[in-house]
Design a protein around this nucleic acid. Structure first.
Lengths: 127, 127
DNA sequence: CCTGTTTTTACAAATTTTTTACAATTTGCC
DNA sequence: GGCAAATTGTAAAAAATTTGTAAAAACAGG
């Protein structure tokens, strides 16, 4: 059924609070420009491009840092922390930790109780 | 550029209540996401991939835990228990104990017949 | 050099996994 | 059926792993 092409033709991510402009490489929170460092922006952009999807640590380390091999470093966590800080009160909503795997960016207001992209066919509502 | 998110029916198990996405490594019960730890997911995935088939303990311990030799451990049972708990009221239906051999995952509401030999491919119920 | 950014360090906290120690169940055999 | 041996179920504790955090050190570009 649903083979879906990822939104790499999109020039930006946008929801009711956050906007990420992949062309200008800028982000804005509630219409205010977010001052992000380069790495912070790249991290946010990669996560937002894959909104709703888990992005494994090794992918993040590969794409943002260029670390090919598994390197023991805490720099990803540190950057996630600073990014969350700049996302303020929405941070917990936006950047989810998937223990043992990586992180997942969730668009605002999407309930986590329901899978945001799993089922091609909605089946069996309730038991 | 996004991550690969092709979703084929070959890459998932699905019945009227449970869905296991082998690509995203996620599962959902009645359309809401199951929060599984890595080992719990791997165990469920391996069982579901062999739906209707008995999977011996030693195979589970080998494939999920990497235990090659026969090791005396209760960790498999503990994981099965936690997985059953998360499957809620369907757990007894889904994960069957085959005494002295292993476990068998059964698709929902499929009456217990002798599956003819090689039916290792996951079959969706209904539709 | 400055200055802002990034990485490392060194723990703390959180989460998952395994072990332990029994309880309960199943099976084979008489 | 009744018993013993083997197997599985379970709760709780211990161990291992992973992530969070603050602060300092290293780095890079003007």
């Amino acid at each position: 059924m649903g083979l879906q092409t990822v939104t790499n033709s999109a020039y930006r991510y946008q929801d009711s609070h956050l906007e990420v402009d992949y062309v200008r490489k800028q982000a804005a929170l509630d219409s205010h420009r977010l001052i992000l460092t380069r790495k912070e922006y790249e991290l946010l952009a990669l996560l937002a491009e894959n909104a709703g999807e888990i992005v494994p640590r090794r992918i993040l380390l590969e794409r943002v840092w260029g670390y090919t091999n598994e390197i023991r470093t805490r720099t990803l966590d540190v950057h996630v922390r600073r990014l969350r800080k700049k996302l303020g009160s929405y941070s917990e909503q936006y950047i989810e930790t998937i223990f043992g795997i990586g992180y997942r960016f969730q668009p605002f207001r999407v309930s986590q109780r329901f899978s945001s992209g799993m089922g091609a066919s909605p089946l069996a509502v309730g038991a």
